[in-house]
Write a protein that binds this DNA or RNA. Structure first.
Lengths: 196, 196
DNA sequence: ACAGCATTAGACCGATTGGTCCAGATGTGG
DNA sequence: CCACATCTGGACCAATCGGTCTAATGCTGT
């Protein structure tokens, strides 16, 4: 049912409330974490009253968190697709991902974390949250694996390369955050395994 | 002044209150994050009343968080030392680190995050917290670099290898958390760069 | 035995938390 | 122009938050 509402927003409409809530949540959660963000602050950022939140997300904060994680993950999948699709080799695609992410990191203030992990790791020790995070992350790896195969790697190679790349991205993003320096991310593709 | 109190705990005494608070904080923070952990829960876990907390840590939760991060970081440095000191090559040392960390990950319930990042990233958007985290993490890298040089790498190589290893550890630990599977960590050393 | 300090114990506080609820605004099809 | 469903606005709530404060309780050296 969630998807329906989202999909109904045909074409180019001004940001509807639901969307504003999701984006505000993604932004705040990745900076201050799930429990670190209060509803008051969140609603102020989104410019929406409490009634709207509980209309669009009956379960409140946790529902919104899942939606925000979904949204952020979808953005990441788009970035992966846009980077690998025109790439002649897997390494080229990976390089583009790194550069795009580095740019994003800078635009977000050289400080934010991964919205998905910020939302889903720190939240309630809820099993559903963990499952959700796992599903989203595996999606990134699966998609990257697909591109690897398309670009000439056999399945095992592709899967290993995708996992290796994902690990580097997560670790590299964190070091970039520590150093407030996106160059760490920009250079990650150089650290990929040539073979294994 | 803080250090004096700590140091006074000569030799082998039963866990003093201060220590119990630090350990409880480290444990809870890495599972539920800084803001996700309430004082009540923390004190219950440590078996200490509120007065003790504010006696040992005048600034309350945030002071305790810094101490817990310090403690966790020191543990990590011990683990690094114990792994690299007897190792014949850098790669062997790294392999041992991976295996020890994987074991630790399992012992902690296949779920916990890095205490330092959990404590310091999600806390107040405080600059002091960020500085502290950066200092601790760079300490890990510095120490690993030192071992790299001792084991025959020239400075640039050693530094690059240490950073590469750190990135893999952070990213790998997170993927292990996603999959609840420590094998990810165990295999990280295989993904280190052979050269660069 | 006493003085003096370190530590513990927990009642208490205002602020903020996430959540509920309903009255009113808004829009849409008949 | 109305009837109906969607959505917004915000007052209100109990629970919990982190933090303060004071009285009691050790433990120490003299």
């Amino acid at each position: 049912m969630t998807d329906v509402t989202t999909a109904e927003t045909g074409g180019t409409s001004p940001p509807p409330t639901r969307e504003r809530l999701i984006r505000a949540a993604a932004r705040l959660f990745r900076n201050k974490g799930y429990s670190g963000t209060g509803l008051a602050e969140l609603l102020a950022e989104a410019g929406a009253p409490k009634g709207s939140l509980y209309h669009h997300f009956p379960n409140g904060k946790s529902d919104l968190a899942l939606a925000a994680a979904d949204w952020a993950s979808a953005q990441m999948l788009l970035l992966i697709e846009a980077s690998f699709a025109p790439a002649p080799t897997f390494r080229d695609g990976a390089k583009t991902v790194c550069y795009k992410l580095a740019k994003l990191f800078d635009k977000q203030g050289k400080w934010s974390g991964c919205p998905v992990s910020a939302t889903l790791f720190e939240g309630p020790e809820n099993e559903a949250f963990h499952q959700h995070a796992a599903h989203l992350f595996e999606g990134w790896i699966t998609e990257t694996t697909r591109h690897g195969q398309r670009l000439g790697l056999v399945e095992n190679e592709a899967r290993a390369a995708a996992e290796n790349f994902y690990i580097l991205l997560q670790g590299g993003w964190q070091l970039a955050r520590v150093r407030r320096n996106s160059d760490v991310i920009r250079g990650l593709y150089l650290q990929m395994q040539k073979n294994n």
